[in-house]
Computed example of a mutant assay.
Amino acid sequence: MIRHALAPFDLTHVQFVLLAVLASMEDTATVTQRDLAEHAGTDHMMTSQVLRALEGKGLIERHAHPADRRARTLTITAEGIRLVNRANAAVEDADRRYFAVLGDAAPGFTRSLITLDAESPGPG
């Protein structure tokens, strides 16, 4: 459902996630590719490849880091903000439709997921 919801925006799910996370980090002074990957929980190499695609679409800009020649800083463009906001509304609608089948069981299901997450061991 998510893939279908994102198709009109020409975004893959990973592109959407990285764009949305970058938008949420907009107030951070300097966001590097590594920062974004860690914040989004994505592989660093895959993140770099996806960011090149987003840059090619004019949705983000990558610049040389002012203090680290190996690092790149990221900025979401105005078009990227507009697109991710529209796509987010479509994703939220798809989520509502998907979970609607739970009806009155939705709150209990959510509590169960929270419990499972709290009890699961972290990475490593």
Results as ranks from 00 to 15, higher is better:
M1P: 09
M1C: 07
M1Y: 10
I2F: 05
H4F: 10
A7W: 09
P8L: 08
P8T: 09
F9R: 01
L11H: 04
T12V: 02
V14R: 09
Q15I: 02
Q15Y: 05
F16G: 02
F16W: 12
F16I: 06
L18P: 03
L18N: 05
L18D: 05
L19Y: 03
L19Q: 03
L22A: 13
A23H: 12
S24E: 15
E26Q: 14
D27I: 10
D27S: 15
D27A: 15
A29F: 12
T32A: 10
T32G: 10
Q33C: 11
L36G: 03
E38H: 13
H39W: 05
H39S: 15
A40V: 05
A40Q: 06
T42E: 13
T42A: 10
D43G: 12
D43E: 15
T47F: 06
Q49G: 04
V50Y: 02
L51G: 00
A53Q: 13
E55L: 05
E55K: 13
E55C: 06
G56T: 07
G56H: 07
G58I: 11
G58W: 10
I60K: 01
R62I: 06
R62E: 13
H63A: 14
H65Q: 09
P66S: 11
P66M: 05
R69Y: 10
R69A: 15
R72F: 12
T73R: 06
T75D: 09
I76W: 01
I76L: 07
T77Q: 04
T77E: 01
T77F: 01
E79G: 11
R82E: 13
R82G: 02
N85L: 07
A90L: 02
A90G: 05
A90K: 00
E92F: 07
E92L: 15
A94H: 06
D95R: 12
D95P: 00
D95W: 08
R96T: 06
R96E: 11
R97G: 03
Y98E: 14
F99R: 01
F99D: 00
A100Q: 14
L102N: 01
D104N: 10
A105E: 15
P107I: 06
P107N: 08
G108K: 07
G108P: 01
G108E: 12
G108H: 11
F109S: 00
T110P: 00
S112V: 08
L113A: 11
L113C: 13
L113G: 10
I114F: 11
L116W: 14
A118C: 02
A118T: 12
E119I: 03
S120W: 14
P121Y: 08
P121Q: 11
G124P: 07
G124H: 10
G124Y: 07
